[in-house]
């Protein structure tokens, strides 16, 4: 036996339409769905029904119950949304204690570089800044009388102590203490006796070194071309050209085409056999490549910074522009 509850439902709809306050809706809810509500009363009929009828009736009663619940809860949620509030919150007011902290663009650039090189298997190593002539020059195949020392205007703090002119000294120390194979990157501060709008007496460098069996020039190119693409986030026009460093042979410089002009961004090459000998690695068994680049240079290109001095003035208005970068 099925029963038609259409009139009951339409009556409910009418009642709901007429009321608006949460209180009224609550009353309607208990009138229909309460312990002794209309729906419960209808359910009582089940007791009197035969087994066959029970099946049919049960089904339609459940549909009724669901329908009633649905209608009431819909009305309730509508009413809640439109509930009057004395002072609605103004979500456009400022948030509290907003942090405007930021990493320094140099650190951000170092992090970006080390995370790319890290993927290629390079591990970060740091070292001392006040070095001796052996680790900064001699071990790197730069004898005292060599004109190449002109490329490094060196700050001295005593007769044989100097401020490192490159982080290659860290590579020397790493090779001496860890032997081959190794794959390291050495970010850090370096110093040269030079100051003008494009040179700073202190700046940052990162160098990479890979020593293993059967490392050749194509591997050097592989790391650097991929690195440049990843760092700038797009394919860049690049070129390698022969250059000269006492510690690499062959030596190269990598230029990128930037706004129509070739810009030198890094120096690199295959580690010179004399350097390997100086750190007691047999160049007959191992070969390697090395590269070094200036962090400021890359940061300037990436962030359109034109004045090198901005990096060390630490004006908060400059620094906070790098908010959100890591």
């Amino acid at each position: 036996m099925s029963k038609n509850y259409t009139s009951l439902i339409s009556e409910l709809r009418e009642k709901l339409k007429k009321c608006s306050s949460l209180h009224d809706i609550a009353n309607i809810k208990s009138f229909y769905l309460g312990k002794n509500g209309i729906v419960s009363i209808e359910f009582n009929e089940l007791k009197n029904a035969s087994i066959d009828e029970k099946k049919e009736l049960g089904k339609s009663l459940n549909i009724l119950k669901n329908q009633v619940q649905e209608l009431i809860s819909l009305k309730l949620s509508q009413a809640q949304e439109t509930k009057d509030v004395d002072y609605p919150i103004d979500v456009t007011l400022p948030g509290k204690n907003i942090s405007s902290g930021s990493r320094h663009p140099i650190s951000i650039t170092i992090n970006q570089i080390t995370s790319i090189l890290g993927k290629y298997g390079f591990t970060s190593v740091s070292g001392i800044e006040i070095e001796d002539e052996f680790h900064n020059f001699e071990a790197l195949n730069i004898p005292d009388t060599h004109p190449a020392r002109d490329m490094h205007d060196t700050f001295y703090v005593s007769d044989n102590k100097l401020l490192r002119t490159h982080t290659s000294s860290v590579q020397i120390r790493s090779m001496l203490s860890n032997k081959a194979p190794l794959k390291i990157m050495t970010p850090g501060k370096v110093y040269r006796c030079d100051s003008d709008p494009t040179h700073s007496p202190m700046f940052h460098q990162i160098e990479g070194l890979c020593i293993d069996k059967d490392i050749n020039f194509c591997h050097l190119k592989g790391v650097l071309t991929n690195f440049i693409t990843e760092f700038f986030g797009r394919d860049m026009e690049i070129r390698f050209r022969p250059s000269y460093f006492p510690f690499t042979e062959p030596s190269a410089e990598l230029d990128i085409k930037f706004r129509g002009k070739w810009l030198e961004v890094l120096g690199c090459g295959m580690v010179h056999p004399n350097v390997l000998t100086n750190v007691k690695i047999n160049f007959k068994n191992f070969s390697g490549f090395a590269f070094g680049l200036g962090i400021e240079r890359l940061a300037m290109l990436k962030y359109d910074i034109v004045d090198l001095r901005m990096f060390y003035e630490n004006d908060i208005s400059f620094l906070s522009q790098f908010k959100g970068l890591k």
Partner: peptide, 29 residues
């Protein structure tokens, strides 16, 4: 090695392939 550079620069650095070898063993963790 100095003669390797002589030949390489006449060959043209840009004419060498780029090979990215990532999985080499490293003595420094």
């Amino acid at each position: 090695q100095d003669l390797v550079e002589e030949v390489a620069r006449v060959y043209g650095y840009n004419n060498f392939k780029s090979v990215l070898a990532v999985n080499s063993f490293n003595n420094i963790q």
